[in-house]
Simulated scan of single mutants.
Amino acid sequence: MAWNVFKFCTALRGLGSIMILLVLAVVGVSYYAVVITIYGPGLAAGGLDSLLAVAVLILFHFLLVMLLWSYFSVVFTDPGCVPPSWTPALDEERGDTNPLTLAEFPADVENRRIRFCRKCNQFKPPRCHHCSVCGRCVLKMDHHCVWVVNCVGALNYKYFLLFLFYTFLETSLVGLSLLPDFIAFFSDGEISGTPGTLATSFLAFVLNLAFSLSVLGFLIMHISLVAANTTTIEAYEKKTTLKWHYDLGRKRNFVQVFGTDKTYWFIPAYSEEDLRRMPALHGLQYPSKPDLDAQEF
């Protein structure tokens, strides 16, 4: 008898706030090592040491604010659910826009390519998938992330990418800031501080180095996904699909995730204009290659 591992997916919900506390713990250790132990006291050193301390502290706090803003935006933003009244067109390829009802589903599903979720008992918009952890369908679902205790989907995917981006920059900065003390520790150099502060700095360096390298891999992967206008789930589905009609070119694909307003590209938010004129940001409909002549971004 096959073992259905999806029955145990709901166990991931139990992690809940533990993962959030773990992220905040790493932030706290890093803050203590960089600000309290090393560069905070370095402000009183005078000369170039003080200028270096000011530069590191300003950049550290800026990246930290952006990291936490992006992180909690992913945590608290619903990735997108299917509206209760949503129904697909009867036959979109033939131009028939008459709405389909659930009663018509069994007879039409085979030849009209209608997507339906048996678990939620509802129609599924394009690029929508069912999450076994959340127990519902998620618009343009990418994956369920235990680190953010949420699904990553249409409405928070940009925030997730920014979280990866700022996490990489922040952890890299912390690693570089603590590198001199780390080298001195193993070369019997002179290091100021108590054994407790030294242990905290050592732990912060190792944690941030590990996070920096791992996040870089995820960041590169998701950049390639954005460039192809696909998600993690769809990347596997494309192996059985000859053509991917949502790939509109790198520029248009980028805009579908980050919007057209450049002032909002690096913050976890969208302009009102983009939200008004770009249906793709709402997760229910997406332009495809045949639509290019009729729709501009």
Rank of each mutant, 00 (worst) to 15 (best):
M1L: 15
A2T: 03
K7R: 13
L12F: 13
G16E: 08
I18H: 11
M19I: 02
I20D: 07
V23A: 07
V23S: 08
A25W: 11
V26S: 05
I36A: 11
Y39K: 12
G40Y: 06
G42C: 14
A44G: 04
A45M: 05
L48F: 05
L48K: 15
L48N: 08
L48H: 07
S50N: 04
V54Q: 14
A55R: 15
H61F: 01
L63G: 11
L63D: 03
L64I: 01
V65N: 02
L68R: 08
Y71K: 05
Y71G: 03
F72M: 09
V74E: 09
V74W: 06
P79R: 06
C81W: 04
P84E: 09
S85E: 15
S85W: 15
P88Q: 08
E92F: 10
P99Q: 00
L102K: 10
P106N: 09
D108F: 04
R112W: 04
R112A: 03
C117N: 09
K119M: 11
F123E: 08
H130R: 12
C131V: 02
G135A: 05
G135L: 03
R136W: 00
H143L: 02
H144W: 00
V146W: 07
V148H: 10
V149K: 14
N150T: 00
N156E: 03
Y157G: 01
F160H: 01
F163D: 09
L164R: 10
F165N: 15
T167K: 06
F168H: 12
L173T: 04
L176Q: 03
L178C: 09
A184E: 08
F186E: 01
F186G: 00
D188N: 08
G189T: 12
G189R: 12
G189Y: 12
I191P: 06
T194K: 00
T200A: 15
A204K: 06
A210D: 03
A210E: 05
F211G: 14
L213F: 04
V215N: 08
L216W: 15
G217W: 08
H222M: 05
I223S: 12
V226W: 14
A228V: 07
N229A: 13
T230Y: 05
T230S: 13
T231E: 05
T232M: 14
I233V: 15
T241N: 06
L242P: 07
L248H: 06
R252A: 10
R252E: 13
F254W: 11
V255D: 04
V255C: 05
D261I: 01
T263F: 12
T263C: 10
I267Y: 07
S271P: 09
S271V: 01
S271E: 02
E273S: 11
D274C: 01
L275N: 09
L275H: 10
L281E: 01
G283K: 15
G283P: 12
K289Y: 01
